[in-house]
């Protein structure tokens, strides 16, 4: 049985006089212990996907249709009491800003012990012991002393490691990490990513890693979803997507990276920018920025098709491929 199976999930926002679609019928699966990356530019719907999976969307956002099957149960239909239990025990979320999770007026020890005691029948002393073990797992030096400290007394990197320790407290089966290292330096980011990877592998925890950094996705995940304007436009094995992207947007994203061009040369930019939810173009949402655009791209939304080992939503996948074949011949 897969850990998570999302089918035709749509999320909308109720605006003053109409609704806008933030997620448009997205579907994907996650096996137990699998690591999945979600990439895309700002506003693509990555965070909204994370919130929907946790059933944490707040008004004016709501799940309009679709299913989120988690260990066989549909989260969309689940009563809040049961969901709260799942959220603590089986799924955990890590945010970009550790202070979303941490309470500034409680010590690290109080927060960890409270979480443990709310979900498990434990004495305070037992809970503290578990907290210390978890802090040690995330390489927090002298964990006994840290229990007494307040979040503001710790560095940003240490705070984020504590958030990871809290996420792991109840041995979840799924961790959703939304840009967990975007606010941190590369050396600290590398430490935290290595740690997450280690913990997921050794405990067989499923991971959904939301980021706009293709390098991070490449090192951390087995499969990747590329999102654009609330849709999944490409999905497949991370290696395939990085090495041989099929969708013009994914190709554009990878080609725009400075390491894809000789130093000092003009970078390959994608013209324009991501549309806002109130002005998503008809047909293919990428059409105003796409160099391969054809007439029907303006009128017909592309279906997702299996192509060259990945799933792509583009009318012109074949054409792109023919071009490539010709390039090779030439």
């Amino acid at each position: 049985m897969s850990l998570l199976s999302v089918r035709d999930l749509s999320v909308k926002f109720a605006m003053r006089d109409n609704t806008v679609t933030a997620l448009n019928q997205i579907s994907f699966d996650l096996a137990k212990g699998e690591r999945l990356g979600i990439v895309g530019e700002s506003g693509a719907g990555k965070s909204i996907t994370g919130f929907a999976l946790m059933n944490l969307l707040s008004r004016p956002g709501f799940i309009d249709s679709g299913k989120i099957m988690f260990l066989g149960d549909d989260i969309v239909q689940m009563p809040e009491a049961k969901m709260r239990n799942i959220r603590g025990n089986k799924m955990a979320m890590i945010f970009q800003d550790p202070m979303v999770t941490l309470n500034p007026v409680l010590t690290i020890g109080q927060q960890m012990v409270e979480t443990l005691m709310a979900h498990r029948k434990l004495s305070k002393a037992e809970a503290e012991q578990i907290a210390i073990v978890k802090l040690r797992e995330v390489y927090i030096p002298s964990p006994e002393d840290r229990l007494e400290q307040y979040p503001h007394e710790l560095s940003g990197g240490m705070r984020q490691r504590i958030v990871i320790a809290i996420a792991l407290l109840l041995d979840p089966q799924l961790i959703i990490a939304d840009e967990p290292t975007t606010a941190l330096d590369v050396t600290i980011q590398a430490d935290i990513m290595e740690l997450l990877l280690e913990l997921c592998q050794s405990n067989k925890v499923g991971l959904i890693l939301i980021t706009h950094d293709l390098g991070v996705v490449s090192q951390m995940t087995e499969r990747t979803l590329v999102m654009y304007a609330g849709r999944i436009i490409e999905a497949g094995r991370t290696r395939e997507i990085i090495n041989d992207p099929q969708h013009p947007y994914t190709q554009g994203l990878i080609n725009a990276l400075p390491q894809q061009t000789k130093p000092g040369q003009r970078l390959k930019q994608i013209p324009g920018s991501m549309p806002s939810l109130t002005a998503i173009p008809k047909g293919c949402p990428f059409s105003p920025r796409c160099e391969f655009v054809k007439d029907r791209c303006h009128t017909e939304a592309p279906e997702t098709v299996q192509y060259a080992n990945v799933e792509v939503a583009c009318h012109e996948v074949n054409r792109l491929h023919t071009d490539k074949a010709e390039e090779i011949k030439a």
Binding site: P141, S155, V186, T187, Q189, A190, D191, M193, E194, D213, L214, G215, V216, S218, Q219, R239, I242, N243, I254, L257, Q259
Partner: peptide
């Protein structure tokens, strides 16, 4: 050296990142 090794690479499957210990 630590800084350069920490940059996530697009196509490298076996990153060889130098771990820094200790407090800043």
């Amino acid at each position: 050296r630590a800084l350069l090794s920490a940059v996530p690479q697009l196509k490298d499957d076996h990153p060889n990142h130098i771990r820094l210990r200790g407090e800043i």
